[in-house]
Amino acid sequence: MRFTGMFTGTLLAGVLLLGTAGGAAADDAPSPSATSSDTAGSAGGPTEAGTSFGTAAAFQPGRRATADGSTGDYLYWVFPVDAGQRATVTAKVTLPGSTARQGAATWQVDVYDGLRRRQPCVQGAQTRAIAPGAGTVELRCTLRTVRAWAEPWANDPLPGSYYVRLTVLNAPQSDLGLPVRAEIEAATTDMGGAHAVGGRLAAPLTPGATTSKDEAGVSVSRTSPAGAEPEDGWSSGWWTDRWIWTAAGGVICALAGIAGYSLARPSRRRAGLPPGA
């Protein structure tokens, strides 16, 4: 009876710990950032785009960036992504009426990291062809999970600035220059401790100030908007939900050891000893 009570208590403690750890893991489970119209409005989002990496317009994930441009322009934006997050970029292009356009066109959205390396899309259609009569085209690109650090030879996405470039790949010559309106949104998902690694970069990949010369040949220093960081700061650190599972596993192992000892030790009655000896 004594062993049965101890073993039952051990099992109940293990189930309780697993439930606690499971609840914590559920709290840390991947959940996309808010991207609804209530939070992704124009507040805080830029209303114009850059024309190069150096002039990219910065915005935060969960905000909507808009810009008016012309067919054939290269439009650039930039937003921050931290370690352990997976970013999804969506783009919507509104085109002029079908009477103004002469033919079909193909639009594409590309995403580059802080080293200006083009990152592949693991989900979504980043390239779409639009018929002459269509009024809008929507594009989507989901990146790989950002790692806290990587080997120098690897092309893994790293924490820092991520550039979005939107442009038309091919269009009739007569359609180039027609006005378009672009909307860009980015959502980040926390992928949890399963993607945590034992290391991190000394600093995120965010380009700093650049120096160039104006038309008069005078050196001008400009601070790139790509230096913007997440609203809650860069959170790459030592803490992940792996610590919860490690601690829970240690406690369960200790309880299992106690139960095993209670099961394996010889009974006093079996050894012929009096109960009080």
Rank of each mutant, 00 (worst) to 15 (best):
L18V: 15
V15Q: 06
A58S: 07
G54W: 10
S36C: 06
A24V: 15
S42V: 11
A26P: 00
E48P: 00
A56Y: 10
P32L: 04
T39Q: 12
T47I: 09
L18F: 13
G50S: 08
S31L: 11
A58K: 02
F53D: 10
D27S: 14
P30I: 03
D27V: 14
A43N: 06
S37F: 08
L16H: 04
G62K: 04
G45V: 00
S52Y: 01
A40L: 00
A40S: 14
G62M: 00
T51D: 07
S36G: 15
T39G: 10
T20D: 03
P30N: 05
A56Q: 12
P46R: 05
G23M: 07
F59L: 03
G22S: 12
A57H: 03
D38Y: 11
A25W: 15
P32S: 06
S52I: 02
T55Y: 02
A29H: 12
G19R: 04
A34V: 11
D38W: 07
P30H: 06
V15D: 04
T55W: 04
S52H: 02
A40T: 02
D38P: 01
S42Q: 13
F59D: 03
A58P: 14
P61M: 11
Q60A: 09
A57Q: 13
D28P: 00
G54F: 08
G41H: 03
G45S: 03
A34N: 13
S36M: 01
L16Q: 00
G41M: 01
G14F: 01
S36V: 07
Q60K: 07
A21Y: 01
A24F: 14
A21L: 05
A26E: 08
F59C: 03
T47F: 09
T47D: 12
S33Q: 13
A43I: 14
S36D: 14
A57G: 02
A26W: 15
D28Y: 15
G54R: 07
F53H: 08
A25H: 15
P32D: 06
G45E: 09
A24I: 15
T39F: 15
P46L: 00
P32Y: 05
A24T: 10
S37T: 12
A29K: 02
L17T: 09
V15S: 07
S52G: 06
S31N: 15
A49M: 05
A58L: 04
G23P: 00
T39L: 13
P30G: 08
G44D: 05
A58M: 00
A29R: 12
T20A: 14
A21Q: 02
T20N: 01
D27H: 13
T20F: 12
S33C: 00
A34F: 09
E48I: 00
D27L: 14
L18R: 06
G41N: 06
A29W: 13
A25R: 14
A34R: 13
A40R: 07
S36K: 03
A24C: 09
A29I: 05
S37Q: 11
P32H: 07
G19N: 01
L18Y: 10
F53W: 11
A43Y: 14
P46E: 07
Q60Y: 04
T55S: 15
P30T: 07
G14K: 06
A34P: 13
A43T: 14
E48A: 14
A43W: 13
G14W: 08
G23N: 06
A34C: 15
A21K: 00
F53P: 03
G19A: 14
A43V: 14
D28A: 12
L18A: 14
G22I: 02
S37R: 13
G19Q: 03
A49K: 10
G50K: 05
P46Y: 05
S36E: 13
T47N: 12
